[in-house]
Nucleic acid binder design. Structure first.
Length: 590
RNA sequence: GCGGGCGUAGCUCAGUUGGAUAGAGCAUCCGCCUUCUAAGCGGAAUGUCGUGGGUUCGAGUCCCGCCGCCCGCGCCA
């Protein structure tokens, strides 16, 4: 899809090309630094070298050779040393941007580049019978945003919550329920109780490490093993209890998902693929990719990754015959290939799984599957406690998602109430509650999306719940200010003369709006929601300057007022679109 | 040991396939609410871009070495 800045760049390339002085493959455009009074530049170094000329000389020649028609998007061209600088035609830009936002509304910024292609996005993936904690927040928030962005780019996305509902911890859980009784309650409290009896049972086994399942339960407890076996053999009692745990977990998590605007198309847990495992193992062995060791384990050695590097040895089957999650991940890819035929499968999963995914992807491809599927692991860093210490249930410093959201919302509420008492805003109690929810939750989401996901995060409550500067509330506030002006104005004029928007502040906002589509494409291409966050923040700042200097409602003429109102409406729309891609709400007032 | 990630202002981070004077927020200091919401705006101050080489017209960005921090490397997920 071509937006106004795309056409602007096309026109420039074509104009340079028409001069016949630059080979087409050397026409590369770059965005000038902020201090340069130009919108797009052609650095002439390479082209000059090719034609044995000084760069500045070529720039000069090109500048005089290029002719600009009256209705062109190019407003001007000028040589600045070795750079050929182009400025956009302000009037054309204003008209085009306002028309694009006006016509496309909530679709402005979207694209059709993913048309006809499916993408499976796997994220969140919490464990059954456990509360969602900081470890799941990132996957959930980043994954949902990626899903939104890819969908906005025209891909048909299938969001999948790959629940941890399989594995040996369920034997222990069933044994724990048998011993301590089935917990009662509602929502997360029931999960908290399950965690409690689980770790109590683990302590019985002599394990204190209940947090990351590395307890070596071998030989420790026959009961847990027996339950594990029963579950695998579809024993009715075991199945019923397991089913109940799954349901209780889904129900509790759903509340968090609703608050975070997280939606799944499917929630197939690992157990969903259980039937496929024997076949996968058979294929691995048949293909000669793995060796059966004396103990019975099936081991893959020396498998090259996509760069030809040898991967460390890994197991696809334990010596006791059980499968591993790597095996299940392969089955999952095969299922997705056969069911959806996706162009990509995107995993929003912890950075520490990097090797795991290289192994999964390599073995899957080696088996002949997913040949046409781009398998993408989008890794993110770890969240540490305020002092940089690791968070764990064991240490008692774990941060749970629901509590975190509640904290943020409470904080937002008290700030709104303060504004109310200062007479700075006027809201009903219902509105206060609703806005506090959007603002508080938005702050938490934004804290996770405003930077490159690869970075680790050290929790800092002050910053996380900061409502100033580069934060979700600031963006929401800017949106609310726009809406406030539009409310005061009453009806929005149907048409306006966009050419009246000639002030620098207006132009800066218009340019920023025009950059949104490219920001969305870059966010999608790099699996980087922070690109959207960056764009939102810059847009809000530009709008704040406009807001400070130029009155909309008291504009000098009715025509100018109408044009500015359209600009405000477009800004509000674009901000709302960007926030939606991050999963953040845009309240009408604050 | 091998592999992955990170290193930019006191703190938290941006910095497109190499391009023009390295940018924000927070914190600090100084200003701005009779005027569309001050969750805002303006100004001041803050940098051997971890380090040493190399590539070239040009390197925070690419290549190599080194240092520091985090993580991963068969029977957990």
């Amino acid at each position: 899809m071509k937006y106004v800045l795309d056409r602007f760049a096309d026109e420039i390339r074509s104009a340079i090309n028409t001069t016949g002085r630059v080979p087409p493959d050397l026409i590369e455009l770059a965005e000038p630094k902020a201090n340069v009074p130009a919108d797009l530049a052609f650095p002439c170094f390479r082209a000059a070298k090719a034609s044995n000329m000084a760069p500045a000389q070529l720039a000069q020649q090109l500048a005089s050779a290029i002719k600009i028609s009256r209705d062109s998007l190019i407003g001007g061209v000028e040589a600045a040393g070795p750079f050929l600088n182009f400025t956009v035609n302000r009037r054309q830009l204003a008209q085009n941007v306002l028309a694009e936002v006006g016509q496309q509304g909530q679709h402005f910024g979207g694209d059709d580049l993913g048309q006809g292609q499916k993408v499976v996005v796997e994220y969140s993936s919490p464990n059954i019978a456990r509360r969602m904690h900081v470890g799941h927040i990132r996957s959930t928030i980043i994954g949902q945003s990626l899903n939104n962005i890819l969908s906005f780019l025209g891909y048909e996305t299938i969001s999948d919550n790959h629940l941890g509902d399989y594995g040996k911890q369920f034997g222990t859980l069933l044994a724990a329920i048998e011993k301590f009784g089935r917990p009662e309650g509602e929502g997360e409290s029931i999960l908290a109780k399950l965690e409690e009896i689980y770790s109590r049972y683990n302590r019985l086994l002599g394990s204190i490490n209940a947090d990351d399942f590395d307890a070596d339960a071998a030989g420790a407890d026959d009961t847990a093993r027996a339950w594990s076996l029963k579950l695998e053999q579809n024993d009715p009692t075991a199945r019923e209890l397991w089913q109940w745990m799954v349901q209780a977990t889904l129900q509790a998590n759903q509340r968090n998902y609703d608050r975070l605007a997280v939606r799944f198309d499917t929630q197939h847990g690992e157990s969903f693929y259980a039937d496929m495992l024997p076949s996968v193992l058979g294929q691995v062995e048949e293909a000669g990719l793995a060796e059966r060791e004396a103990g019975g384990a099936l081991v893959v050695k020396g498998l090259p990754d996509r760069n030809g590097k040898e991967l460390p040895t890994f197991l696809v089957q334990r010596s006791d015959g059980a499968t591993l999650y790597l095996t299940r991940d392969i089955a999952t890819i095969i299922y997705r290939e056969q069911t959806y035929h996706p162009a990509k499968i995107v995993y929003a999963v912890d950075q520490r799984q990097e090797l795991h995914f290289r192994q999964v992807f390599a073995l899957t491809k080696a088996l002949g599957y997913a040949r046409d599927i781009e398998l993408v692991h989008v890794p993110f860093g770890t969240i540490f406690g305020p002092n940089g210490e690791a968070l764990s249930t064991r240490k008692g410093n774990m941060v749970y998602l629901e509590a975190l959201l509640d904290d943020a919302v409470a904080r937002a509420k008290s700030i709104i109430e303060q504004k109310l008492s200062e007479g700075k805003t006027d809201l009903t109690p219902e509105q206060v509650a609703e806005i506090a929810e959007q603002v508080g939750v938005g702050a938490v989401i934004y804290n996770d999306l405003y930077q490159d996901p690869k970075r680790n995060i050290t929790l800092d409550w002050e910053r996380m719940l900061s409502f100033e500067g580069n934060s979700a509330p600031y963006l929401q506030y800017t949106h609310a200010r726009c809406r406030s002006i539009l409310r005061e104005a009453g009806t929005l004029p149907a048409t306006c003369d966009a050419q009246l928007l000639e002030a620098e502040q207006e132009l800066a906002v218009l340019k920023q709006l025009a950059r949104f589509p490219e920001a969305v494409r870059r966010a999608g291409g790099n699996y980087a929601p922070y690109v959207i966050a960056d764009w939102l923040y810059t847009t809000a700042r530009e709008f704040a300057r406009f807001y400070r200097d130029l009155s909309v409602l008291k504009a000098a003429t009715p025509e100018l007022r109408a044009a500015r109102l359209q600009l405000v409406a477009a800004t509000a729309q674009a901000l709302a679109n960007g926030l939606a891609l991050l999963g953040i709400g845009a309240p009408e007032r604050m």
